[in-house]
Simulated assay, not measured.
Amino acid sequence: MTTVTSEAPASTPRAVREPPVWRLCLARAGVELRQFFRERTAVVFTFALPVVLLIMLGSIFDKQISESGIPASQLLVAGMIASGIGSTCFVNLATSITSDREDGTLKRLRGVPMPPIAYFVGKVILVLVTAVAEVAVILAVGAIFYDLPLPTDADRWATFAWVFLVGVTGCALLGTAMSSVPRSVRGAAPIVNLPYLVLQFVSGIYIVPITTLPGGLQQLGAVFPLKWMAQGFRSVFLPDSAADMEVAGTWEHGRVALILAAWCLAGLVLCLTTFRWQGRKDG
């Protein structure tokens, strides 16, 4: 009698589930944060530059009292917060993405099963974390050395929150779009830093009050978001009487929100139309 043996069918391998997008985004953010904080030189420069400028300028203008009775050094603190956010989210992001494009990081990421949004979310989380840390350091210096009064009511902190978030978003989008301009990472620093340095002066970051600037420079600075970020932060940390030193004589919260939101939209459009995953030499 012949025995018939039946073989069990070979088990098919289970399909590997891809991790959810949010987890990939967090994983990429972790990579970005680790890479940033391992570069000690970049960390020190990022956090020290606005603090050093604040201390130097604050020491120069410490004895000057504005017409509203507010020390000029306190006027500088709010401007330096805006400047620090712009430097972190615009300058650093533009140069870092340019570096990623030139060394082939962007090209390699396009070849792995990772959604493109994970890369951008990782960068946004990086600049958000560094911007929060930088603002905390600047506020600490302003409160300790220049008696900057910190708000005690929720409305002012709410104003701080939306100015901060909209400002970070706009600067991050503009920095991402700006990364497509330099041809190489060597040219990124001067191409990005030079216009930003000029923008800081025409936005009244280093010159207080802003009404001391020539009218033409005031109008030029009013086109860009940095001036409105600084004005929004001044409305948070300075008394209402300080609004007399603004160009319009008021804080103009509505206009601040409108212009910052418009730059967020413009930055998004520029990112969608100009961003490149490969360098020019790669075709």
Rank of each mutant, 00 (worst) to 15 (best):
R255Q: 12
F47P: 02
T176V: 06
C271F: 14
S66V: 03
N92V: 03
V137I: 14
V127M: 08
K281M: 11
G79Q: 06
L165E: 00
V181D: 01
V141Q: 08
R34T: 12
V163G: 01
D240M: 07
E252T: 05
P115C: 07
V44L: 05
I210W: 04
R156Y: 02
Q74M: 07
K123A: 06
Y196C: 00
G104H: 05
D100F: 15
I97C: 00
L93I: 05
I138L: 12
G232M: 04
C25S: 15
V192S: 09
E39A: 12
T159C: 01
W277D: 06
A140M: 10
P195G: 03
S66N: 01
D282W: 05
A131I: 01
I117G: 02
A230K: 14
K281T: 13
V247A: 12
V166Q: 10
P239M: 10
R101I: 10
I259W: 07
N193Q: 14
I138W: 05
V202Y: 09
G216Y: 13
V181C: 02
T130E: 05
L57I: 04
G58I: 02
G283V: 09
L260H: 06
K123R: 14
D153R: 12
P115E: 07
K227V: 01
P113C: 04
G221Q: 10
I117N: 08
K123S: 08
S96G: 07
S59G: 15
C25W: 13
E102W: 05
K227W: 06
V43I: 02
A248P: 00
S87P: 00
L217R: 00
F201P: 01
A15L: 12
I81M: 11
R255K: 10
D100K: 15
A230M: 09
